[in-house]
Nucleic acid binder design. Structure first.
Lengths: 162, 162
DNA sequence: GCATTTCGGTTCAAGCTTGAACTTCATGGC
DNA sequence: GCCATGAAGTTCAAGCTTGAACCGAAATGC
């Protein structure tokens, strides 16, 4: 469509290819650790972890979808499976029955608590450890920038941690 | 398992959550652009693009799997579909019939050429543009570090661009 | 008030990925 | 030469994700 596309310079292309490699590998590596040790996917873990860090361990599904950068459709399926496993329950929001709230169960709480150390260790090993404080700072800036660009391209609000 | 897990400090956790948000959103955003404009997933594009940049537009499947950070199983499926669409063909390696080579067809070449400008524009918009040269440099370092950590944890060789 | 739109959420089919099992072929030991 | 081992690919079932269609309830327009 553009007459003369602005190709990437070498230093830009290298950064992009490295990021692409990360994008393809890191999720499977974290999935593998959690699945092996706790029977959870990374996405499952994020859902439970978000609930565990919030007052009353309760969130509306639409808020949870924002927190986990996921579609409502995907979240609905995952929450259904987690409910069948007894990790949380769904209930209509008493304030406004149009909303559905997900409430973490005790079993769900215990599962997050059990899974957290191994997961954090994996995040340290794969990402954080071995980087300088400056590199971690820039990583945060860059990742926030990307998340913001993607969200605004899709006309959504950016995640709250940016 | 560890007696006292080393939790993440706030500044580490913020960087990790931002990266996680990127990991969840960026692939779908790039998939969406390519799928809409050229009927390709990001992974399809990577396969064709790798072939297009190599002598004879030909690679062994196992090498291609390394280049695209994918399992052989996934690659085998994707290559089969791309072959059915006429974008490439498979043939036994004449040097060593144990290997299978993927050869980009003319239609495949034209598809990559047609898809590249829009894809590069998306990469610019979502990732590169708006960052300083220093940030892009650190992004490359960090992403290479992560890719290396993940690969060595899985006892594989790191990707060649690191 | 009534109709329309919008929002939150669910469901379903289609497609993709994963991991394990399997096949084939080459290589190494003896 | 012969068996065992391992690497390269393929296949298949099971599970997950996606997007579109759908439903019910609230808000909005008039």
């Amino acid at each position: 469509m553009p007459d003369e596309p602005r190709w990437l310079a070498d230093w830009e292309r290298d950064a992009w290819l490295a990021l692409a490699s990360l994008m393809f590998k890191l999720p499977s590596a974290l999935d593998a650790q959690l699945l092996r040790d706790n029977g959870l996917t990374l996405f499952d873990y994020f859902v439970l972890s978000n609930l565990s860090m919030v007052p009353d361990r309760t969130l509306r599904l639409s808020d949870l979808a924002q927190h986990t950068s996921s579609s409502l459709s995907r979240l609905s399926n995952v929450v259904k499976r987690l409910e069948q496993r007894g990790m949380l329950r769904r209930e209509p929001d008493p304030d406004n029955p149009r909303y559905t709230r997900a409430v973490l169960s005790d079993a769900g709480w215990e599962l997050v608590v059990a899974a957290a150390p191994g997961h954090v260790a994996a995040v340290r090993r794969f990402v954080i450890d071995g980087l300088t404080k400056e590199q971690v700072g820039v990583l945060r800036e860059v990742a926030c920038h990307v998340a913001r660009q993607v969200s605004e391209g899709a006309a959504e609000r950016p995640a709250r941690n940016c």
